[in-house]
């Protein structure tokens, strides 16, 4: 059995597989399917200062090998997350989890980040500056390098744990933004969030998603994610947690070859609640077949090309 242990700022993980934020709730719901202690970490659902109901329905549509969603950051607000959601997870998961932080203003991000980082179960923050489904905040911070850097700096000043910035693929130059958040003190990057997309009803011409646009995810976007992770990891020194379309063990290997130090699995958890468990099992077998004794050895294997 190959070594799967991966160490990143704030995260000492038994393997590099993390369920992605927004596809795994606050984790405890999946404990009825399998022992979630097998997971490297968990990226919990994006949290804002106040509770949010999110967007009107329909919030979901489908596309070739993928799905479109516009949930709109539905969450119970930080008070409930800290006092209830994380407490429900506590008896079920022993390692540190990653808090996904969202907001409509710099002040909201900073406040949620500060309070989240003080919770003993949180090993790192993932700052969501890339949600395409809310009108204010979110992606505004993620599409402008200066704003992204300002936000990163402000959060770094208050956070007790390492800070990862979640980047959007819906930009002209993702490398510019990655470099800006690195220079601003980010400890790591998570990428990519969903790609903005639409679907229409053929008869009426009406967008299927009530929010009109949604974020596209699923196996269809894997090659896009691989390309962007490859580019960014060649350009920055901080570690990248790679995500976007991972649905099996082979995809994890490929994402790490592209340069990711760990990975997140998103939509596949929705199609198959056992996806992360299966992927971890597959990883063991695949590395043995490849004759790799330490998974860290394949990180950035592609960078020679």
């Amino acid at each position: 059995m190959a070594n799967l242990r991966v160490k990143l700022p704030g995260l000492d993980m038994k393997n590099p597989v993390i369920p992605a934020s927004g596809t795994f709730g606050f984790g405890y719901g999946f404990a009825r399917f399998y022992d979630i202690n097998i997971l490297g970490s968990i990226m919990i659902k994006a949290t804002t200062l106040e509770p949010r109901f999110g967007n009107p329905l329909p919030r979901i549509a489908e596309g070739p090998s993928g799905m479109l969603n516009a949930i709109g950051l539905q969450n119970p607000g930080i008070d409930v997350v800290l006092n209830e959601s994380l407490e429900q997870l506590r008896p079920l998961y022993k390692d540190k989890v990653i808090a996904n932080v969202a907001g409509s203003s710099l002040e909201e991000y900073v406040e949620v980040a500060r309070r989240m980082s003080e919770h003993d179960m949180i090993g790192a923050l993932e700052i969501n500056i890339s949600c395409p489904n809310v009108k204010a905040g979110g992606i505004q911070f993620g599409t402008d390098a200066t704003m992204a850097a300002t936000l990163t700096k402000a959060i770094k000043e208050v956070s007790k744990v390492p800070v990862y910035i979640k980047l959007s693929p819906n930009v002209t130059d993702i490398v510019e933004i990655a470099k800006a958040v690195e220079a601003a003190g980010a400890d790591g990057i998570t990428m990519i969030n969903t790609l903005i997309g639409m679907r229409f009803d053929l008869k009426t011409g009406k967008p299927i998603i009530a929010n009109k646009t949604g974020g596209y995810s699923g196996p269809a976007i894997l090659p896009v994610a691989l390309n962007l992770v490859y580019k960014v990891t060649k350009a920055v020194k901080i570690p990248v947690i790679g995500m976007g379309g991972i649905s099996c063990g082979k995809d994890v290997i490929e994402m790490m070859i592209a340069g990711a130090s760990a990975v997140a699995v998103g939509s596949q958890n929705l199609v198959d609640p056992f996806a992360c468990m299966t992927i971890i099992e597959e990883l063991n077998e695949l590395l043995d077949q490849m004759g790799v004794s330490d998974i860290n050895d394949i990180v950035g294997l592609s960078h020679q090309y």
């Binding site: 927004g22 719901g29 329905l57 329909p58 979901i60 609640p273």
Partner: peptide, 22 residues
């Protein structure tokens, strides 16, 4: 009925508001 992402409560794709909460 609603368009669902997962069907088991993970994605929040089918949330609705009721008089007794979301």
């Amino acid at each position: 009925e609603a368009r669902m992402g997962c069907g088991f409560g993970a994605c929040m794709g089918c949330s609705c508001e009721t008089l007794t909460g979301d």
